[in-house]
């Protein structure tokens, strides 16, 4: 019953703290390798893409994914910011692959707060950089609404966004992971074959996809709120 993030390989030491390659970083690299290979394969296959893909083919799947992400970006970000769809496609694919990696007995990298915080910080930078680029003065004025006394509240509100985003993803996936580990530890070896699958189905497949979707949608909503002129 050990669900800690194991340290695998020590890298270097700073101020008495040794930095290790942890299990989740290793899993991230495996996922990256898989996605890289998949991308390169798909990149070569795109030349032989047909006008009308056959049902159930890889092309069909990819087109479905790209088109749904495009529609999601257009409806949540607006036309002007829909070029961010590519970035969120990558984020969605990465989070989904992370969450599903526990099906292959890897430790999902999203159970490491470093991963989710890194993703949330990307969103944080996107929110504020795009806000400054697209709305300039209006963006700064938002911090003094409704009156200037609310400045600290607004700043704390802004800072809490990446925290809530990252903790939501981290907590959901880690909760599912811990529950499954507990289940595996508590069941006799005979029952470890089929019974955990039900929980895998809920915790990994359903919650995993849902959390990936929610992370993307909430990031998009936050970005639109700050960077789009349509509504303050």
């Amino acid at each position: 019953m050990d669900f800690t993030n194991h340290r695998i390989w020590p890298l270097f030491t700073i101020k008495g703290h040794t930095v290790y390659i942890t299990e989740s970083i290793f899993a991230t690299w495996i996922i990256m390798a898989v996605l890289f290979i998949f991308t390169i394969a798909a990149r070569y296959k795109i030349n032989s893409f047909k006008e009308r893909p056959a049902a159930g083919s890889i092309q069909n799947l990819l087109e479905l994914a790209v088109e749904s992400m495009h529609n999601m970006a257009e409806s949540n970000l607006g036309k002007r910011l829909s070029w961010l769809g590519g970035y969120f496609f990558g984020v969605f694919a990465f989070i989904l692959a992370c969450n599903y990696s526990s099906l292959f007995k890897l430790r999902p990298p999203t159970t490491d707060f470093a991963t989710t915080l890194a993703l949330a910080l990307n969103t944080f930078f996107l929110i504020h950089v795009l806000g400054l680029v697209y709305r300039k003065g209006e963006y700064l004025k938002d911090y003094f609404k409704p009156i200037f006394v609310f400045l600290p509240t607004n700043i704390i509100g802004e800072l809490s966004r990446p925290v809530s985003l990252s903790f939501r993803l981290f907590g959901n996936i880690l909760g599912g992971f811990i529950m499954l580990e507990l289940l595996y530890a508590s069941l006799p070896a005979v029952f470890r074959i089929a019974i955990p699958d039900i929980f895998h189905f809920y915790e990994d497949i359903f919650i995993g996809a849902l959390q990936a979707f929610i992370f993307c949608v909430l990031s998009m909503t936050f970005i639109k709120e700050k960077a789009s002129e349509e509504e303050a």
Partner: peptide
């Protein structure tokens, strides 16, 4: 459905905070 999912995710945040505190 999509609005419900987003709303449920936001409402869940407090529970996740509690869970993280417990951890």
């Amino acid at each position: 459905m999509s609005t419900l999912l987003i709303g449920a995710a936001v409402a869940e945040t407090t529970a996740i905070y509690g869970f993280v505190i417990a951890l």
